[in-house]
Amino acid sequence: MPISGGKVPDGRDAGFISVLHAATESRPDEIDTIVTAKAVAGALSRLGFATEIIGLAPDLRGIDALPPRRPLLVFNLVDAVGGNCRLAPMVPARLDALGLAYTGAGTSAWLDTLSKIGTKLKLAHAGLPTPDWSEDGTGLDPEAKVIVKPIWEHGSLGIDPASVMLGSDAARAIVERTLRWNTEHFAEAYVDGREFAAAMMEGPNGVEVLPLRETIFQGFAEGQPLITDYDAKWTPGSQAYNGTPRRFGIEREEPALAAALTRLALACWDLFGLDGYARVDFRVDETGAPFILEVNMNPCLGLDAGFAASALEAGLSYEVLIGRIVEASLGRLQATA
C-alpha cells in the first residue's frame, strides 16, 4: 500500500492494529501520550484499519492478551511505563518474545539509547560530535556553563532555567536534583547557540530526513538560558512555551549547515540501528559547529508535535505520516518472513 506520494490507502480489509501506551495522568507529558494515542488511533481508523487503544499497567499484562487477537501490527507509543522511562524497553522486549510486530525501533536500539550517558559514549566512540559531560560534575571547567539533566528521562522532565549553571556548581546540583526528582542526573557542557531537530522515517527508498526544524527563542530575559525546558514543551501559556516557536527553511537558507545536520542524523540512524521513525536533537554553537544532544527512539507523534510539523512541511498529512510508519513496519516484517 504505497502512500509516499500522499495517497491515503483504502484499508477497509487492512487488519487490526493495536495502539499501545503505558502513560498515566500524573504529568502533562504523560497526558500528552494518551492524547497522542487517540490521534494515532483516529488516523488508523481513517486509513481503514480496525484499531483499539490499550493502556498498559506497570505489569504490562495487557500485552499478553494480544496474541490471540492476531494483530497485524502493534503501534508502540510507550516511552515510559507509569512515568518511568527506564522501563520503556520492557515493552518491545515483551513484544519480541511474543512474536508480535510493532512500529519503531527494536529492543537493542532502545537499550543503546535509554541512558543519555550511554548514548553519548557510543556517539563519542564513533567519532560523532556530542558535548562533553561528567557523571558526577567533576572534571569540568568551573568557569564554563553546563546543563544538569536527568540520565534516563525524556521530554525535558526535570529541566528548567536553573538547570544551566557554572561548572563549579554542577556536582552539588547533580546530588540535589537526583534527590528531588528521584532519578540520576549528570552534567553536560552547555552549547550556547541554536537548536535543531531532525525527524527521520523510513520511506520507499530507505530512511528519509524530513525538513529540519529549528526552535526559535524569543522574549527571553537577558541572561536567561535559551533552552527547551519542561515548560517550553508542556505548559501552554508560559513564556517558555510561547517563546519557542518552530521554523523551517534551513535547507534553502543555509544548505551547508543543513547538509551537516542531515549527515549526522543519518549517521545516528545507522549507528544505533534505528527503524521506522526517530528524531535526533542538535545544538549548533556560535561558530556553526553542530553537536548531537539526544537520539529519540519514540518521538512524540501528537497532532501539534514537531515531528508531525516536519512531515507536514514535507507535504505529508497526519494520516499519511501514520500510514508511512505502518507501511515501514510491515515492510520489515515481510522482508524477514
Rank of each mutant, 00 (worst) to 15 (best):
residue 7 K to I: 15
residue 78 V to A: 05
residue 326 V to H: 05
residue 319 E to R: 08
residue 37 A to V: 11
residue 78 V to Y: 01
residue 307 F to K: 05
residue 46 R to Y: 08
residue 170 A to H: 00
residue 22 A to M: 02
residue 222 E to L: 13
residue 276 G to S: 11
residue 193 G to H: 02
residue 140 L to Q: 07
residue 229 D to K: 06
residue 43 A to V: 06
residue 138 T to E: 15
residue 123 L to N: 02
residue 138 T to R: 15
residue 317 S to L: 03
residue 291 F to Y: 15
residue 204 P to C: 14
residue 114 L to I: 14
residue 334 Q to V: 01
residue 154 H to R: 08
residue 138 T to Y: 15
residue 135 E to G: 05
residue 170 A to Q: 00
residue 183 T to E: 07
residue 21 H to N: 15
residue 150 P to K: 02
residue 32 D to K: 14
residue 247 R to G: 07
residue 277 Y to L: 03
residue 259 A to Q: 12
residue 296 N to Q: 03
residue 226 L to K: 09
residue 314 A to M: 05
residue 246 R to A: 04
residue 44 L to T: 11
residue 82 G to L: 07
residue 70 R to C: 10
residue 121 L to Y: 00
residue 186 F to N: 00
residue 10 D to Y: 10
residue 292 I to M: 02
residue 112 D to E: 14
residue 269 W to Q: 10
residue 124 A to L: 12
residue 58 P to C: 05
residue 43 A to W: 01
residue 290 P to G: 03
residue 128 L to I: 12
residue 41 A to D: 10
residue 55 G to T: 09
residue 224 Q to T: 14
residue 123 L to G: 06
residue 322 I to A: 09
residue 264 L to Y: 00
residue 189 A to C: 10
residue 299 P to R: 08
residue 225 P to G: 02
residue 31 I to M: 12
residue 312 L to R: 12
residue 292 I to G: 01
residue 64 D to H: 11
residue 87 L to I: 05
residue 244 T to L: 04
residue 23 A to F: 06
residue 117 I to A: 05
residue 34 I to M: 10
residue 210 L to F: 03
residue 276 G to K: 05
residue 14 A to Y: 01
residue 60 L to Q: 03
residue 157 L to N: 12
residue 177 R to Q: 12
residue 251 E to C: 10
residue 209 V to H: 06
residue 142 P to N: 01
residue 45 S to P: 12
residue 201 M to R: 10
